[in-house]
Nucleic acid binder design. Sequence first.
DNA 1: GGTTAATATCGCGTATTGTTATGTCGGGTG
DNA 2: CACCCGACATAACAATACGCGATATTAACC
Lengths: 321, 321
Amino acid sequence: MDVRQLRYFIAIVEQGSFSRAATVLRIAQPALSLHVRNMEAHLGAPLLFRSPKGAVPTEAGEILLRNARIIVEQLAITEEEIRSNESDPRGLVRLGLPGTISEILSVPLITAARQRYPGIQLRIAEAMSGFVLEWMRDARIDLAVIYRKVSGDGLSTEELLEEELAFFGPAGGLNDGETLPAPGTRVSLAGVAGLPLIVPGEDHGLRLLLDHHAEVAGVDMNVAIEVDSYTNIKKLVAAGFGCSVLPLHSISGEVAEGALQSWTIDGPPIRRPVHLACSVERPMTNAVAAIRDFIPELVRDLAREGAWGGVSEPAADCEKG
Amino acid sequence: MDVRQLRYFIAIVEQGSFSRAATVLRIAQPALSLHVRNMEAHLGAPLLFRSPKGAVPTEAGEILLRNARIIVEQLAITEEEIRSNESDPRGLVRLGLPGTISEILSVPLITAARQRYPGIQLRIAEAMSGFVLEWMRDARIDLAVIYRKVSGDGLSTEELLEEELAFFGPAGGLNDGETLPAPGTRVSLAGVAGLPLIVPGEDHGLRLLLDHHAEVAGVDMNVAIEVDSYTNIKKLVAAGFGCSVLPLHSISGEVAEGALQSWTIDGPPIRRPVHLACSVERPMTNAVAAIRDFIPELVRDLAREGAWGGVSEPAADCEKG
DNA sequence: GGTTAATATCGCGTATTGTTATGTCGGGTG
DNA sequence: CACCCGACATAACAATACGCGATATTAACC
């Protein structure tokens, strides 16, 4: 049996007549005769009692009618459910962020997402870029913001922007008396590499980036302290134990407060891309897809407002489907 | 959406692959591609996540799958329900019978019907033929056994048999001393009309029949007592207050017990047809139809066994559908 | 880099579905 | 009582959908 036949049957019973149902259904009356006849043949029982005044359901017809209504209704509900799920996604979205990104993105994202997608529950996990990527591979999170482009391995990334890293030091000068560059001047990598540096450990993306730039520039870095936390790096720098390199936006607060001072690095700027990663091998819930599409928008807005120190809005290259 | 598409979709998900589902469904794989694509276009959402390893449902697909299973199941249940209802009718069947018929038919009918159609509940109402017909018109009963042929008025009748009426009197002779015919002899209507008669009132089918026969034979009936109950007629006759005319079978018990004696009426036999009436304008439940078809069979069997004094098995003429 | 195994696309034949025209049957009406 | 009308049934034909086979495309695997 076919739902179309069920619909037709319901219409006939509701109209009490083949011909009236035909006009309502905008088809010709013989089509209904045929359909009912086929159904009756299929079920081996008369469904409608025809009379010159119209048609009324037989006992079998009553049974069919009762069930047909349920089935047709169920179908409509199903379509509605799917459609509403498309237009108004709901469910949990787990997002992994590195600390510096979280610091600037978490609050705007949560507030904006809650407003735009009330049905979506965001769970943000904060960790270093490497861990975030690992979680992503383990499917412990649905989306990740990381500092590298990843392709293959079931992941796909979309570049959000490129952050420019800034060299910064304590506003009050270094504890060991070494002189810092004059405020507002441009500094060269070679000129500051000799200052005591507070940087993350060697398996960190930022450290690798700095090492790479130092190598290209042919200078040795004077690594004074290795700390695996952006907050602690900033605190140690503010306390005068050395200088460091971090995204501009993550130190702008302390700079404004007068705890830190920063210099623009001369020569090739040290930049790192910020990517949004999503799984390409698992089907994504609509909630995840909504957030995935929402984050780049939000980041663009933040960058435009100047809230994000980064630059360069790249073209999207994340396969979305 | 179409149930066929739902079935196909379920098969694809269960098989985890378009092509495997195609072989299971015994259709070509491109057909499945098309169907899924149509469904996705219709719903405005991807349903399956295709990969070189097969296909898994997306979020929308999961919703659809869950509902599709229910719908397909519901359809199967519906068909099953209708079919089982056809093969094993159940429900209430209200049957109206005149007293003399009930006396012979009720017990065999109830026992036989209960065995053959365990799902059917028989409710037998007993009343004089005229009342039974009235109930039938008021749709207070589904089937009626009556003594006349009825056509039109939304009713249709099937003749079950023709009862032959017998003249009978008290075995011990009449109270007033009038002489009864010799046992075993044939009597003429004219010869017995003068005896005191105990008959039903004038609006009774049996009384009308007797009046008609008396008129045709040109004799006057000596109506001694009018009683509207077959049982009471028999009791009064047995008590010697007069003679009467009733169907042979309804007095055979008392004749055998020696309470009554009966004579065959010479000349044109007094007969009345027994009809089974059913509504032709209301659709009949299968239970009613089953009993309607069952009663003639049973009556035939009873007549064959001799349990029914009637004769003449007519051809069925009741429209059955 | 070729092979394999999966889905997507295309063109065509056929079966299903719907339409128009006509038939049949009952009931109501002059 | 004949007539007409309204309702369902039937038949021949047209449009659409469906399924098939061949082939393209893609990603994974060796």
